[in-house]
């Protein structure tokens, strides 16, 4: 794998639930917190909507990292959606590891509507961690030599 250029920035896809994490990210905005611009957000109504296929698609499309952020367990707006996320993530993590995608590239976080600061911190941490790991560049992995 070629060394990435110095100005390479990770691209990270974030799947955020409407009621908690997305609101938390909005709060970081209304509070004018500053954080790294590497996370691009897809809004879903509940993390329970997140098919592991979406995460795989993100990596396939060129993401260097993926975050899934939802309500704290017990607080899901739809009661139990995030427990499904928890269960699917348990299996997905193992699959990603077997695929050679380092565990740091996928993160599951619980962010409530009031946790703007937490969201900003997660975005910063993830950007730094992936920057250190380097690009995933999956399209190169499947390029026919």
């Amino acid at each position: 794998m070629a060394v990435p250029p110095d100005n390479w920035e990770p691209r990270i896809v974030g799947f955020l639930c409407n009621w908690c994490a997305y609101q938390g990210a909005d709060l970081a905005g209304t509070s004018r917190m500053t954080y790294a611009p590497n996370v691009r957000i897809v809004r879903v109504m509940c993390t329970g909507r997140i098919d592991p296929t979406f995460v795989l698609k993100a990596f396939q499309s060129g993401a260097d990292g993926v975050i899934v952020a939802g309500c704290h367990p017990g607080d899901c707006h739809y009661t139990e959606g995030n427990y499904n996320t928890m269960r699917r993530t348990a299996l997905l993590r193992r699959l990603l590891s077997q695929m050679g995608i380092e565990p740091e590239r996928f993160r599951l976080e619980w962010v409530s509507a009031g946790e703007g600061a937490k969201w900003a911190q997660i975005a910063d941490e993830m950007a730094a961690a992936i920057k250190a790991k380097g690009p995933l560049a999956w399209w190169e992995n499947v390029r026919e030599a």
Partner: peptide, 23 residues
């Protein structure tokens, strides 16, 4: 929030992450 809509969104979200020639 169909699969088709979300998958298209994800793919387009990363259009600048990969070279134009990447399959």
């Amino acid at each position: 929030f169909t699969d088709q809509q979300i998958l298209a969104e994800v793919e387009a979200l990363l259009v600048d992450a990969r070279p134009a020639t990447a399959a």
